[in-house]
Amino acid sequence: MVKKNKKKGFLSDKVFDIANVCIMIILFFVFTYPLYYVLISSFSSPAAVWSGNVTLWPKDFTLIGYKELLGFGRMWIGYRNTIFYTVAGTMLNVFMTVLCAYPLSQRDWLPRNFFLKMCLFTMYFNGGLIPTYLVVKSLGLTNTGLAMIIPGALSFYNALIVRNYFMNSIPAELNEAAKLDGANAVQYLVHVVLPLSKPVLAVVTLYYAVSHWNDYYNALVYIFDRDLQPLQSVLREVFASVSVNTTDPQGTAEINVEALYQKAQLAQNLKFTSIIVSMVPMLAIYPFIQKYFVKGAMIGAVKG
């Protein structure tokens, strides 16, 4: 840690400190302003946002965008689907991760190195898009909710984080003691190892949950049915579809321009409100969990 510098003599140090503080304050705004802008725009009248009058706080405060969003059924279907994919997927992920990490952490397990290499290889080499797609398709998983959960049931990167934790943070003597008491591997895992591994399990649970919540790719490849689409696919449509008819410069000028404008403004507003609504769970828990994310990145950085 940087202690306080007793000698304050250097002019260059003062310049450095002041510049540093200024840059950090600027960075603070760079990181937060885009989200803040989306937030205030979602509460402002569509016309004010459209004409660029919203910059620092909401203008003509209104909830019309949110009301509009409430009536947008597909968004809520997507929301429901994503909650389901996230909860079920994360539970399966954590289960599989423990099943993978624990045997691979046991030094006296004969095939440990063989299976470790088998798993590691998949991190660097894979069949690619089409061969994987054909496998998922031949199992009958395409266009079912399971396609969002099962092909990604395990991330070996996360399993390695957990394995490292099992190996480095849980004293091997505990295993000996448990064996003497007559506990088998499963009992030892459930009653001793897992309760001691809560921090690392929390971290990988969060990693998995976030990746499910943000997943767009799997839906793009495996899901065609609109009713099964996750939130991110619906969001993508909200962003993509409306901008087409609003930015057309030679748009059909004869049609009621006023009404067209209003429609475009509402569509624009829908983008802001849907971003906010899609991030509500994340924004709500972020301040409480961010220290775990960091901890996880540190654990992950330690090679095992």
Binding site: N126, G127, L134, V135
Partner: peptide, 10 residues
């Protein structure tokens, strides 16, 4: 199933 079978698919 999900890693080595696709490799065969190569």
């Amino acid at each position: 199933i999900f890693s080595y079978t696709p490799m065969y698919g190569i």
